[in-house]
Nucleic acid binder design. Structure first.
Length: 261
DNA sequence: ATGACTTATCCAATAAGA
């Protein structure tokens, strides 16, 4: 089974790129983040035309997460247990579904903005709620995929000195990732197609992509039994090339499963 | 080559991304 995750940075203007990528990559399940549209504007029909059922959780201009599947899409749930609000509102940043017997989460962790900002505390609380929710569901066949907005180590940013005092690299954020590992999840480490580190994000500005000034902030965690059966995982940086692309690249994971396919 | 931000929204200036 081929599972992928991609922060698409607005699904509707990205539809041609997404369709072409689906056709050439042929994933069975795709987690999307930052769809940036209400449910009514999600391109269900275009996805169905390519053989994918869709579950989307979005409310407008910001955020928005989805799961596409061509191997079944059951027991959809949106949001986390005791998910914290931001400025009094619950944001669409988490959706889960069971696809071919695997519990799959598509996640868009809050950015945090600045360490002194309320958004940063919101990010840390949100990650606590994520861990609790996964522990509650307590499945042996769970995978968390998405934009975690955290670089797990200093090697996961293009220049550590450029991130002094910034979010995405703090000990507190990284401790939340470690806490996921203590909830019996292991990270799936994708290989890069080029260079040493499998960056997943490059800013649109200042030639960041051609200069490879990237960050590895899109991540995948799986239950150990599933992680052991991962046959390959890579970041598809080819999808970041050219005009009209997302500023994130997809992660593609091939896992051998007992069930079909 | 990979090319100097991009998006949705009270349509145009703004907030947000990381």
């Amino acid at each position: 089974m081929r599972i992928a995750t991609w922060n698409i940075n607005s699904i509707n203007p990205r539809l041609p790129q997404l369709q072409a990528w689906l056709a050439r990559t042929e994933p069975d399940v795709v987690c999307l983040q930052e769809t940036k549209c209400p449910d009514a504007d999600f391109p269900d029909q275009a996805m169905r035309d390519l053989g994918y059922e869709c579950a989307h959780h979005g409310d407008g201009r910001w955020n928005g997460v989805a799961i596409l599947s061509r191997v079944g899409l059951d027991d959809v749930r949106t949001g986390l247990t005791d998910q914290p609000d931001f400025e009094g509102k619950s944001e669409p940043r988490a959706i889960a579904a069971t696809c071919a017997g695997i519990r799959i989460w598509s996640l868009y962790v809050p950015n945090g903005r600045e360490v002194a900002h309320a958004h940063y505390q919101y990010k840390l609380r949100w990650l606590d709620a994520l861990r609790s929710t996964v522990l509650q569901e307590s499945g042996e066949r769970v995978v968390l995929l998405g934009d975690f907005n955290i670089a797990p180590t200093d090697a996961d940013v293009w220049d550590r000195s450029a991130f002094e005092g910034a979010t995405h690299v703090t000990g507190a954020e990284r401790a939340k990732l470690k806490a996921l590992e203590s909830a019996d999840l292991v990270e799936i480490a994708p290989r890069p197609l080029k260079y040493d580190v499998a960056f997943t994000f490059w800013d649109y500005r200042q030639l960041a992509f051609p200069k490879n000034r990237g960050m590895r902030i899109d991540l995948a965690f799986a239950a150990p039994a599933l992680a052991r059966n991962v046959k390959d995982a890579y970041v598809d940086r080819e999808a970041r090339k050219g005009k009209g692309t997302s500023d994130h690249a997809p992660i593609v994971i091939d896992v051998e499963t007992e069930e079909q396919p």
